[in-house]
């Protein structure tokens, strides 16, 4: 929970966190493993306030205590959602696997929501594994990274026939939250890997059974994402990577957020730090403090109200994951009595 300087309280769900191991000892394919974490580190360094920038070695592998401190002690987060990214071609034990996250979930059961991931190229064996994980962990969500490498294959699409089998399985098992993350490669490699059209297709097909949370709002295809989300009521936007713009590029943050509010709306956007890309503390403080500039409000006819902030910071994700939100943190709750 975050209490703003004006006394307003916010229930906080961090919709996208990682506990990764990108230490040198875990490099399997050195070129790509190193390229991966250094790319993350540049995002971290470029968009974080200076006093939140970590040394590279810590960034490669951070201990459990650090993560707990950053999210739940310093970071105001009530619940954090794990979105694993396997990358087993790059890292010996994977980058951020479900098993790794499960260790943390077991030790802090009330703090984390454990999601898993699947890859249609794992075929029948992957479907069986998903069933087992659903039974073991009570999964309500999965993270799909369509640019994951598997040997010579550099990615996949949600509309691939085998992917549909997995989506059917998710619907059957009640894994209703499908987090989709596009990356820089796909099969075939000559197509736009960031294309979100496949989300449109499956969102229509699974309108009544699944929700699709498009991570990073489809960045760099935020415009195409918006166009889809405005037509598909089961498509949501995860704000990871866009959030740090609030500090580093406030004008662009205002411009893009106002477009998202216009096309997608305040009920289908979810806050995320993408930890350890960024730390939630400063993102939350700056976001709550943030106001859309007058010219943008007037031009675009949208506003970022306190209620909108409450929805984005936690209430929307709480609905997706059936989280119990204390009554006083709900919209419409009576304000807390002034301190005497």
């Amino acid at each position: 929970m975050y209490t703003a300087p004006d006394g307003t309280t916010y229930y906080v769900v961090d919709g996208h966190v990682h506990w990764w191991d990108a230490s040198n000892a875990n490099y399997r394919d050195e070129k790509h493993a190193d390229g991966w974490i250094r790319c993350f580190y540049d995002y971290h360094r470029n968009l974080s306030p200076a006093d939140y920038v970590w040394p590279f070695e810590l960034y490669q592998q951070y201990p459990e205590e650090r993560m707990i401190q950053d999210l739940f002690v310093d970071g105001y987060v009530d619940k954090a959602i794990f979105l694993p990214t396997a990358l087993t071609d790059f890292y010996t034990n994977g980058f951020n696997t479900t098993e790794r996250d499960a260790y943390m979930k077991e030790r802090h059961p009330d703090r984390f929501i454990l999601n898993s991931c699947w890859d249609p190229r794992d075929e029948e064996a992957g479907l069986r594994k998903l069933e087992e994980e659903a039974a073991r962990y009570g999964l309500k969500g999965v993270k799909l990274y369509t640019a994951e490498w598997r040997g010579s294959s550099k990615g996949w699409k949600l509309t691939d026939p085998m992917a549909r089998r997995y989506l059917d399985k998710c619907a059957e098992l009640g894994i209703v939250n499908i987090h989709v993350h596009k990356g820089p490669t796909i099969w075939p490699l000559n197509k736009d890997a960031f294309d979100v059209a496949d989300v449109d297709d499956v969102a229509t097909e699974y309108r009544d059974s699944l929700r699709f949370i498009v991570e990073h709002c489809g960045m760099p295809r935020v415009d195409d994402f918006c166009w889809i989300a405005t037509q598909e009521s089961n498509v949501y936007g995860g704000l990871a990577v866009l959030m740090p713009f609030v500090h580093a590029r406030p004008r662009y943050f205002a411009e893009v957020l106002s477009e998202l509010l216009w096309w997608v709306g305040e009920d289908r956007l979810t806050f995320a730090s993408d930890y350890a890309l960024w730390s939630p503390r400063w993102l939350i403080e700056k976001f709550v403090d943030f106001q859309l500039p007058d010219d943008i409000r007037e031009q675009k006819g949208v506003d970022l109200t306190t209620d909108a902030k409450r929805k984005i910071l936690g209430l929307n994700a709480a609905k997706l994951y059936d989280l119990e939100v204390p009554a006083e943190l709900q919209i419409g709750a009576a304000p807390a009595p002034a301190a005497v």
Binding site: R45, N46, L47, D223, E255, E259
Partner: peptide, 23 residues
């Protein structure tokens, strides 16, 4: 209204890529 969204996103992408390049 739709074209503005395309322009805004393209500019924001440019801002991100420019910043990453400088880093």
């Amino acid at each position: 209204t739709r074209a503005r969204m395309t322009r805004v996103c393209m500019e924001a992408n440019g801002s991100l890529c420019g910043g990453l390049h400088a880093t």
